[in-house]
């Protein structure tokens, strides 16, 4: 018996060989099947670029907008779940209230898919130091650091609010807020990089992160991964 981290009810965690061998840190599930069923996996029909809402082999409205700016140089994003009430609630608890243990639920939602993506560098989207100080943890790195080796290439310019507190148009109008750290020794050029974030909302954050990295490493092959789209 284990207590579900979302609803607090006791449940019998399922253990499968796949789970045990693919990710040794996960011995047991941490959310019950009823809570798991509240999350909506993205169906096969999705935007071919970013997993947004679109018919199969077509592009979503966001990507059509990005196309006007970037032409063919769009950022390919892999996502697993659609944004719904359940996802909204977990993000409020995790990010706004600072319920750190919920990273385990988020890990459980994504680790099987993330493991299938093999790249040379996994780069988390950084959180501002001010927010880290307030919550006592970095929301993105806390999810992924136990799943894949992270390369902290990006830093956040200080004095800019979080995207989560902005409206859609405010997000799109925000300015470049990332810098590439100095003194990176790794040979990033010609290698593959996967940017990691929790949610892809408009793509604004991830495109800025990609732009910053691409400028520093023009030949790096950059894509992104988010749990939710």
């Amino acid at each position: 018996m284990k207590k579900c981290l979302l609803c607090g009810q006791d449940f019998i965690p399922a253990t499968s060989f796949l789970r045990i061998f693919s990710f040794k840190k996960f011995h047991e599930q941490c959310l019950c099947q009823h809570c798991l069923a509240k999350f909506a996996p993205i169906s096969r029909e999705h935007c071919e670029i970013c997993y947004g809402k679109a018919a199969a082999n077509e592009r979503c409205l966001d990507c059509l907008e990005w196309q006007k700016i970037y032409g063919h140089n769009l950022l390919r994003n892999h996502a697993i779940y659609r944004y719904n009430d359940a996802f909204h609630e977990i993000m409020v608890n995790y990010k706004r209230y600072g319920d750190y243990v919920l990273r385990e639920v988020l890990q459980e939602l994504c680790f099987e898919q993330l493991k299938k993506i093999k790249v040379d560098f996994y780069v988390p989207i950084p959180t501002s130091l001010e927010h880290i100080a307030k919550r006592q943890f970095d929301t993105v790195a806390a999810i992924y650091s136990q799943l894949v080796p992270l390369s902290f290439f990006l830093a956040k310019k200080e004095g800019q609010g979080a995207q989560g507190e902005r409206t859609r148009s405010e997000r799109l109008e925000s300015k470049q807020s990332f810098l590439v750290k100095e003194g990176i020794k790794a040979d990033v050029n010609k290698h593959s990089v996967l940017l990691l974030d929790d949610i892809y909302t408009t793509g604004r954050t991830l495109y800025y992160a990609r732009d910053a990295l691409q400028t520093a490493f023009p030949q790096a092959k950059i894509s992104s991964f988010t749990i939710c789209r």
Partner: peptide, 10 residues
């Protein structure tokens, strides 16, 4: 029962 990375309970 839950802990932050700094080891403090919340």
């Amino acid at each position: 029962y839950a802990k932050l990375p700094n080891g403090k309970f919340y």
